[in-house]
Computed example of a mutant assay.
Amino acid sequence: MTESLDRRLHPVRPDLAAKAYEGRVTADRFVEGETRRVAADLVDLKGAPRPDKSIDTQALFGETVTVYEENAEGWAWGQLATDGYVGWMPASALAGPAALSLPTHRVMALRTYRYPYAELKSPPLGILSLGALVSVVDRQTLRGLDYAVLSDGSAVVERHLVPAGHRVEDWVAVAEALTGTPYLWGGRSSLGLDCSALVQLAAQAGGMALPRDSDMQETSAGETLDIGNGLPELERGDLIFWKGHVGIMRDRETLIHANGFAMAVTSEPLADVARRIREREGHAISTVRRLVAS
């Protein structure tokens, strides 16, 4: 028995599949998988275990990955818990769950340095993006600055964090704060991102878990608005879709989106974007969806 499954969301290959798919698909063997956490600031997920393959998406520090295989070249094949994305990543970027305790907080600043200890003058260990997850075990204050001490002994500035379950009221403001962030195909961090990652990261700050790619968001994010007789009266936070692209309405007329035209997150009149995409790519607006916070 074999189902046609999207490789991006289902850990299934002809030679190996997750145990949960046994009886549904044909594979040489089925495995339970092992829980790991991302121990690198940022790690690329790819469709094949090769450094020259393009980035499908990225995993952030502290996120959970179920690993189903590690090969001799140091690649791990697994599924990201945040949005279910499946791909290959360097095994060296992952640690066992004991090495990184259960996350208690999320990075809410666009990015924050992680120091070896609570001292901003110390050489940083790395830089964490908006959305990264950390486990806070202590707090320290040095020269009037409060630090959150993490489970591995490192430290970040406390005001850059929020509790893991925190929700902002105006999630579009998070997208606006990312204005100027470079466009990166497959990117999913404040260092570089693509159109659907901008939507996903901003919505996450508002407590809404969205799928990773624009085609997935177009079929499942929020509620569909009728555009049979033209565009409805748009509201802040409405999502506008074209084939392969998505943006967020800042108001009734202005769209913010990560785009390859500007190679950055920019805001511009929706009418201008729609005209340009129609003229350059031949695509009209295909769907409008409105997110509803649960």
Rank of each mutant, 00 (worst) to 15 (best):
V12N: 04
D15S: 12
D15R: 13
L16H: 12
L16R: 13
A18C: 15
K19Y: 09
K19T: 07
A20L: 07
A20I: 08
E22A: 15
G23C: 03
G23A: 01
R24G: 06
R24M: 10
T26L: 07
A27Q: 00
A27W: 00
R29Q: 14
E32T: 12
E32A: 12
E32P: 03
E32W: 09
G33E: 08
G33V: 14
E34T: 14
T35A: 04
T35E: 03
R37L: 06
V38T: 04
V38R: 05
A39L: 06
A39V: 08
A40W: 07
L42W: 07
V43N: 06
V43T: 15
V43G: 08
D44G: 01
D44F: 00
L45P: 04
L45M: 03
K46Y: 04
P49H: 12
P49L: 07
P49S: 10
P51S: 09
D52G: 12
D52C: 04
D52F: 07
K53C: 10
S54T: 08
I55D: 01
I55S: 00
D56C: 02
D56P: 02
T57Q: 01
Q58T: 07
A59T: 04
L60V: 07
L60E: 04
G62S: 01
G62K: 05
G62N: 01
T64C: 10
T66I: 15
V67T: 11
V67H: 06
V67G: 07
V67M: 09
V67Q: 05
Y68V: 13
E69P: 03
E69G: 03
N71R: 12
A72L: 08
A72F: 08
A72Q: 13
E73Q: 15
G74Q: 02
W75G: 09
A76M: 06
W77M: 06
W77S: 03
W77L: 08
W77I: 08
W77E: 06
Q79A: 14
Q79L: 05
L80E: 04
L80N: 00
T82H: 02
D83P: 06
G84M: 11
G84K: 07
G84W: 13
V86K: 13
V86E: 11
G87P: 14
G87H: 13
S92F: 05
A93W: 10
L94P: 01
A95R: 02
A95M: 03
G96E: 10
G96V: 06
A98D: 04
A99V: 07
A99D: 13
A99I: 05
S101P: 02
H105Y: 10
R106Y: 05
V107F: 01
V107G: 01
M108G: 09
A109V: 08
R111Y: 12
T112E: 15
T112A: 15
Y113P: 11
Y113L: 14
P116C: 12
P116V: 11
Y117H: 03
Y117A: 05
Y117P: 00
